[in-house]
Design a binder for these strands. Structure first.
Lengths: 111, 111
DNA sequence: CTCACATACTACGGTTGACGTTATATGGTG
DNA sequence: CACCATATAACGTCAACCGTAGTATGTGAG
């Protein structure tokens, strides 16, 4: 699972959101590092719904514009938790390996 | 950056390795979850070398077989550390959001 | 001797997922 | 009227990963 997909699931974990709300939430959660484009978002939403990770919560018509709210399914929540654990493990492995790096001086010159 | 690429950089962080050694190291580091195929590995190695993340350390001819050792560059080490931090942040965000999940009963039935 | 297996790299084709852009539709602002 | 923010849909493109097969050598089993 890639970062945009992971963050979309993360955004939907706390409460149902419509597409545009997901874009804003993901920007927040990633401290501005990830800004979803429509092509990425709606493609991912369709895919995740097909996979049963998310479900349509409800649809609202606000001033002629359709708002489709999605919510995280139980399957999606379980998968997200697993992925989060995996991310933690990978990050820890990288930091551990970097610590073994020869010449890893942390800015010191060998003093 | 995707998981296989991240783990290849992680494998090379502690010491130079040749391709096959990377496959074994990644299997170890990921507790068997990620088994790199040649197509994934050598494609990634070429790409990472082009990007300056890794460098050819040395080449050895062992019993007619070529062994090409790669090492992580300074750029690669910095990038890997950044990615590790990002992974930790994303994992923490997901877990935090999951904690806010309505009906997040942790197996309880509401008693 | 032959076959299978581990080591080690190369080459090719296919699929997925993210990306960028454009189009549609409406209300508010200048 | 033009422009911007909201909100979704529908393209085409590209990067990255995946699987398989091929080349080559040494070792151990049958």
């Amino acid at each position: 699972m890639q970062e945009p997909t992971f963050l979309i699931l993360t955004a939907l974990a706390a409460q149902p959101l419509h597409g545009y709300g997901v874009i804003q939430s993901v920007t927040d959660l990633s401290a501005g590092d990830v800004k979803l484009r429509p092509g990425t978002l709606y493609g991912a939403l369709d895919r995740l719904a097909e996979q049963g990770m998310i479900e349509v919560d409800r649809e609202e018509a606000i001033e002629g514009r359709l708002r489709r709210y999605y919510r995280l399914s139980e399957t999606g929540a379980t998968t997200l938790q697993e992925q989060a654990t995996r991310l933690h493990r990978n990050a820890a492995a990288a930091e551990s390996q970097l610590g073994k790096r020869p010449g890893f001086t942390l800015g010191l010159t060998g003093a």
